[in-house]
Design a protein around this nucleic acid. Structure first.
Lengths: 336, 336
DNA sequence: AAGAAAACTGGGAGCGCTTCCAGCGACCAT
DNA sequence: ATGGTCGCTGGAAGCGCTCCCAGTTTTCTT
């Protein structure tokens, strides 16, 4: 910190300046035992004087630990990460990693190239661990990841199998909550717009909807499939209106789709919530600003990130964590 | 790819299997010249058979190149990254880095710890380059970064100085566009809600507003300062309403704030756009879903990321790029 | 066909760090 | 005194790769 050195200061220089061996210097850097107080202090001073910072690469090579974990988004859609959802996940992860010596690497595995990269990561310990969010159904990498020798925790549960380690939001429970709310309101012809059915969140929310209606003894036959996008929501709503004009409520599996649905409803002259009540999922920021403001299910996104990171840390430390399901809760606004 | 090796396959093993020296094997991996066709082929086969993947750490140590660049967000607000803005920047960056051997590291330098980390990065070539988005006014790291020996490109221009290398959106031009639009509409008592005045975007947009009004010969005295947040926008709007009840339009320096302002206006019984016209900035997704939908200035966020990455690549390659200002454009919707 | 140039080849010295190990005094109990 | 423990200490061997260099082979001139 005293001067800006042109060349990297090495441990040898520190050792020399402190008048000790490199081994000793290394020990005090990593505060390991077997160094006398005097030398320890001498090294400390040398470090400060020289502004020494250990070379992470060399250390990684020697210890066989990379000092970095990666957040990988495996998706067939290059724009997937643009979803504000991930920004929040990252905030959560980052908060946990902050207390650690670990760096965070970001891998948007959306192209063939990115997928290859991810595969290498999974096969060849080039990272200390990976947090994987797999965004399409039959992702071969997801299966690979679950048996990789590298620690892997999943964010969200894939449809095809249940990974050993994952954290997810209680999608099914949230959907049930939302649907029950609609039932409580006295609605009886409750439809749903599902998300992508090749994603865990899509199927789980659909399941929750079905369960709630089964319990209430109501017909769960009014369904249209969307893809989590606004446009998909519009399309599905139109389809629903055409097929089941009698509907008086709809549980929409994402706010994004709900926004699309809202527009279609408005154009069709159905008033919300009087003619049809709408509840969404996620509680994105814009959900507060729709007309009318959207009743929705909130999931703790930052916590999701935080818990993923924590679980990964545990895995790296040799623990055997159990999957974690985070609670969701209903946020009531004016669309119901 | 043939089998999952427990231990990392090394170059030596490849060399041995191919019956060549390690040097030769290295040459074919990095496809350098001076290897006979036969050996080259033998090595290729060995690589495939063994599923060899070079150890990035070892390579980094030998070449003195890390193989990774970092995107650093320096901010006093831990939640800063939760802004969907960054998610899009990352998509842009990632798209460029994809064609490269470089990894992307993410550093949310929001705590003291993170700041230290960033400083080390800047001082000690632990990365091949950094893209820095500095989100608060008197950030000492920003100044340091601009003279660091590590390649650094700024995303957005700080208020206090103009970095050597940066890419920014044309905030001033966009603000002028927005304000001129209001003028064209025949509004004459045009107010503004500014962003944080310790951020480049905040001052530049304010400047654009002033310029447009100066050209039109209109009074630019109706101003309230916000902080880019929704709550700040509400507060500022209330202040404006109290101090300048005659206003008939307001240029708001962010959509987020505009949303807050909209609510206050509604509560005050002023109709938008009839009584007062509003234009925002950024064109976030929710801008389309406000009541009424928001006229706003769109900046090409993904391009911002893309160009930052490209500029950094240039810098790393030894070029001397010039700062880049990305165009903004007006998106007309119903709030004006 | 002889000599020079060009292409190949593998040995070996690092890159900066960790960590094992053998050597040493100091210190205690016998 | 004597043998044994124990905390320090620095030498040295890697971690897996790149790259210089000196030596060997091939190819091309004239």
């Amino acid at each position: 910190m005293t001067e800006i050195p042109k060349r990297q200061v090495t441990l040898d220089e520190v050792a020399e300046r402190a008048g000790v061996s490199r081994s000793a210097a290394s020990r005090v850097i990593n505060n390991a035992p077997h160094v006398s107080k005097a030398k320890r202090e001498a090294v400390r001073r040398a470090v400060l004087d020289l502004g020494y910072v250990p070379n992470a690469t060399a250390r990684a090579l020697a210890t066989q630990q990379v000092g970095a974990v990666v957040l990988a988004i495996s998706s067939d859609n290059p724009q997937a990460f643009a979803d504000p959802f991930f920004a929040e996940v990252v905030v959560g992860i980052s908060a946990v990693l902050e207390e650690t010596e670990l760096e965070l690497m970001l891998l948007l595995a959306t192209s063939a190239r990115g997928q290859t990269r991810l595969e290498q990561l999974l096969r060849t310990r080039q990272t200390d661990g990976v947090m994987l969010m797999s965004m399409h159904g039959d992702d071969p990498l997801a299966a690979l990841a679950d048996k990789a020798e590298v620690p892997v925790v999943f964010g969200g549960c894939p449809v095809t199998f249940e990974p050993r380690y994952y954290v997810d939001a209680d999608n099914r429970g949230g959907a049930r909550l939302a649907t029950e709310h609609l039932v409580t309101l006295g609605r009886t012809r409750i439809a749903t717009i599902t998300g992508r059915m090749d994603e865990g969140a899509g199927t789980a929310r659909y399941k929750g909807y079905q369960e709630a209606l089964a319990v209430a003894g109501l017909d769960a036959g009014r369904v249209a499939h969307g893809d989590f996008s606004e446009a998909g929501g519009s399309r599905a709503m139109a389809e629903l209106l055409a097929g089941h004009p009698d509907l008086d409520a709809v549980f929409v599996a994402s706010d994004q789709m709900a926004i699309g649905a809202l527009r279609v409803l408005k154009d069709a002259g159905r008033s919300v919530p009087d003619d049809v009540a709408i509840v969404g999922f996620n509680d994105v920021i814009s959900a507060r600003h729709t007309e009318p403001p959207l009743t929705t299910v909130r999931q703790p996104i930052q916590s999701l990130g935080r818990e993923m990171a924590r679980m990964l840390l545990g895995l790296i430390a040799g623990e055997t964590p159990t999957p974690l399901i985070l609670p969701t809760r209903l946020i009531k606004r004016s669309s119901t």
